[in-house]
Write a protein that binds this DNA or RNA. Structure first.
Lengths: 209, 209
DNA sequence: GTCTATATCCTGATAGAC
DNA sequence: GTCTATCAGGATATAGAC
């Protein structure tokens, strides 16, 4: 593909780093599909129809691309919690529902970067920093679950920590198979997750009991 | 660490490939922690207190280690479905519950290899083959869910495919944080997953409604 | 802004001494 | 069974012409 359809010589009107953004987008996309470590700058060059060296006119290093991607994901997920926690009206349960819903929306809207974040496990500084930030977010989610449990909205026979891990484990698992133009949109996915997790799969009504 | 405690010159009594097994175990462990592509044979050599070249006395190639690991995971997960499907007595719902429970047990018992499998996304033959085998397993799980839904055991307002993805997404998410000697054993995790997914998180009894 | 050419290092893997 | 020495290829990144 050429550098995104219809912009072979697009002037810089209000968008000073269009090409840098293109390289970043394609890189994140490729990384999220093949894995960061399994993707070489040669792979990225082929994807961009450029030579390896040309890429370095737009970016500083491969690791820089990763760092930018991870920060994008972390910023957006952090914002989800900012919003949920800011709701001073509404129960903790409601805040938790909001967090679940918004997390799914962010995951869908920023699928490649969030996917990349969820697969980070390396030992480089960039990866370690991302893991630290992610752990803080996870802690805030546990706090949200704990508050909803303390409120009496959630069943009390399960550890809030465990609930949080499993609940957002299900949410995050969406990144492994949801694709753009999927048969499910964010609303359907949100409904499905919320229904299963809060109401359960068992058929309601005069059921098995 | 030396080559596993207390076996510096362990004779081959009934175990013809002890050292090969040791290399494999350490490799899978390292791969599952750092990622296969992010782990070099140099890293593995350091972990084994060997030189790179010495490793090749025990194994054929790095990719062979990966293939063996993925097949271990796939064989065990496939066996879970063999067992579940073989239960000719019992409802489809019961078979599904068994599959969930057994999957979690296999995931815990073979944590490194299953973790590795769940993170496969590469383009090499070995990875593609593993993805194909995994897709077949996923299909069998969907079939199990579909049967339970057709039976009327599961709520009918959610697509069985979607249910299966989310249910086993939650199960598989255990690989991302469960560790040996965790505060939760397989039984507790199974109970928690089954409780959340089948009964839901909402507090039971004279509740919110 | 892209190219060719190159530097430097690291990768997986092999040969052969001990 | 482990070692040293080595290989060919590929990795990220840079220099400088156009």
């Amino acid at each position: 593909m050429p550098p995104l359809a219809g912009h072979p010589a697009a002037p810089r009107r209000g968008r000073p780093d269009y090409d840098q953004e293109t390289v970043l987008r394609r890189a994140i996309d490729l990384f999220s599909r093949q894995g960061y470590h399994a993707t070489s700058m040669g792979d990225l060059a082929r994807e961009l129809s450029l030579t390896k060296s040309s890429i370095y006119h737009h970016i500083r290093s491969k690791e820089d691309l990763l760092e930018t991607a991870l920060n994008e994901a972390l910023d957006n997920l952090g914002a989800v919690l900012d919003r949920a926690e800011a709701h001073r009206t509404g129960s903790a349960y409601q805040k938790l529902c909001d967090a679940v819903e918004d997390s799914i929306e962010v995951l869908i809207a920023h699928l490649p970067s969030v996917t990349l974040l969820l697969r980070v496990q390396g030992i480089s500084m960039v990866e370690q920093d991302a893991l630290r930030r992610r752990r803080k977010i996870d802690d805030r989610l546990v706090t949200l679950v704990r508050a909803a449990a303390a409120e009496g909205a959630l069943r009390d026979d399960l550890d809030p920590y465990l609930i949080s891990r499993l609940l957002f484990g299900m949410v995050n698992s969406l990144a492994e198979w949801v694709r753009p133009n999927s048969r499910y949109d964010a609303r359907q996915l949100t409904t499905a997750v919320a229904t299963i997790v809060f109401d359960g799969l068992r058929a309601p009504g005069p059921g098995i009991g």
